[in-house]
Write a protein that binds this DNA or RNA. Sequence first.
DNA 1: AACTCGGGGAT
DNA 2: ATCCCAGAGTT
Length: 359
Amino acid sequence: MEFVQPLLEWYDRNKRELPWRGEKDPYRIWVSEIMLQQTRVEAVKDYYGRWMSRFPSLPDLAAAPEEEVLRYWQGLGYYSRARNLWQGVREVAASYGGKVPDSEAAVRALPGIGEYTAGAILSIAYDRPVPAVDGNVVRVYSRLFCLAGESETALKRKIAALVAGHLPQERPGDYNQALMDLGATLCIPGKPRCDECPVRDFCRSFARGTQQEFPPKKKKSTVKTVELVAAVIERHGAFLLQRRPAQGLLAGMWEFPTVEIETGGDAAAVESAVGTRTGQQVRLGPKLMDLVHIFSHRRWEIAVHHSTMTVPGDLPPEPETRWVNRKEFPQLVFAGPHRKIAKTVAAQELPDGAVRGKL
DNA sequence: AACTCGGGGAT
DNA sequence: ATCCCAGAGTT
């Protein structure tokens, strides 16, 4: 295709300088691609740097405990990515002698590696001509060819087939990355900067002035609001923390005891619910803060209350519950907004012997 | 095909 | 507010 060469030349002159760019170690490419899933380049840079200073090679990650791996991922989101990456790396260490396989089937079979990531790893690290169609590439190609597609999956499939036919055998990784850089810097959502585009002359939507119509808008999902009360329960300088369920949202991460409430639920009902959850008799104290935390498809509104135990009881086996000193906070992986609560209460250093929570 | 899964930056 | 980001896995 005639636009391949102009695009590669544009890439050679204008590619972004990124920490993982020029990297050939498949493990390092792998890590970057997983971090970049649904995550902006700017957000990834720092995490990638910290990660590589701690887990510079595949065996380093394979040998690390899961808890520590999650600590290095804390705040990035989509935590199953970290677990899958860790599991995948261990699988490579165990079954492939520590060398990331270079066949599409084998790479695709690793946990957390889907069609896009397989293409990215194979083309960038192994120079294999496999398309890597991410959101950028969908946007670029749908505009180049005025492609709408019957569904998102059909559109993506169609584009992957086109890219496969265009990939230059000499530098497939650069072509994939050139498409992504173009989509990230010029062929952006909203108002693309077509005046600077190296392939404008080949773009059908530019010719028709219909760039805005591509790619087709995806239907918006509804965001459900959930009201919660979190209880900060302190005793002898330690705080009561609980682990979230192993499956689902923020799986396995630590949080202050939290209950979902009906709108306008009264204090007694909340105290009862917290008591059931923690095995303690609890009285809600003064409000520490209100937090709003927004996920893609959920909105948490959390009232955080200092709370006191009226009658200390045994800790429940489920969910896992622990008294944690604030000095141990850095060792834990906190669930989303609870990081902020932890940071706040940990900062409230008291002199020895001082008592907190008196009304 | 539709949902779930995080967090944040741009508009 | 809305969009969407170098998506994958499950239902």
